[in-house]
């Protein structure tokens, strides 16, 4: 599977994603610079974490308007699989590809720890085969997911909540919520399910030497279809 990893000035999880995709998931992964106009021939798009444009204005706001994002939007509109992790999630929300927004963590501090996640939908390519609880790292200062009350109700009713922060037993407790996200939401999909955004980092948990491999479960869709 050919996966484009978008690079913005200030991206810092781009290499993590590239190597995880290439070495652990068997993808043909490559960078696409933000100023490019075309993704080229790709099967999926990865919008990585980091501090694109130094988080100026709002996290992800400038990146959402970068040249390459027009083609990412076209690709997504045509049903192409797109994933945004951490700052990439913020970029997808700012670009309107996903509903809601991400605010400063409730506790007002950067949070870097492991979290348990419960998959909450089977819609779309990313979530189709997710059923197990997974444990992944989070590392962010602005990961408090919010959306308006009506939009939140729609998200829940449409099955667009992809992952919820839970405890090791699978309960969405307050203690399990690292940032104060509404309804413990850790990730969402668009209505078609081909666009996924999440704060936790599956790409940091795909090899045993990093002590966690649950990221492979989350990214199984990418490794399952290989085009050599």
């Amino acid at each position: 599977m050919r996966v484009a990893v978008i690079q913005f000035p200030g991206s810092n999880c781009d290499r993590d994603a590239l190597l995880s995709l290439r070495d652990d998931l068997g993808c043909d992964s490559f960078y696409v610079w933000h100023a490019e106009k075309s993704l080229g021939d790709v099967d999926a798009v990865w919008v990585p974490g980091g501090f694109s444009y130094g988080d100026y204005l709002r996290c992800g706001a400038i990146a959402a308007n970068a040249a390459i994002m027009s083609d990412v939007r076209r690709f997504a509109d045509e049903g192409g699989p797109v994933i945004g992790v951490c700052n990439g999630f913020q970029v997808l929300c700012e670009s309107g590809l996903l509903p809601g927004a991400l605010l400063l963590n409730e506790a007002e501090r950067f949070v870097c720890r492991e979290v348990w996640l419960k998959p909450e939908t089977r819609t779309g390519p990313w979530m189709a085969n997710q059923s197990d609880l997974v444990e992944l790292p989070v590392a962010h200062g602005e990961g408090r997911y919010i959306c308006e009350a009506n939009a939140l109700q729609q998200l829940e009713e449409n099955g667009q909540v992809a992952f919820r922060y839970v405890d090791a037993a699978g309960s969405p407790t307050q203690a399990a919520n690292p940032n104060g996200s509404v309804n413990n939401i850790a990730g969402v999909i668009n209505s078609a399910g081909n666009v996924l955004g999440m704060m936790p980092h599956p790409e940091r948990a795909t090899r045993a030497v990093l002590s966690r491999t649950d990221g492979r479960k989350v990214l199984e869709f990418l490794s399952g279809v290989r085009t050599g």
Binding site: R58, A61, C93, P99, G100, A101, L103, C147, E148
Partner: peptide, 9 residues
């Protein structure tokens, strides 16, 4: 509406 503010928040 397109950049300076995010109407969602």
């Amino acid at each position: 509406e397109r950049l300076i503010a995010n109407p969602v928040i």
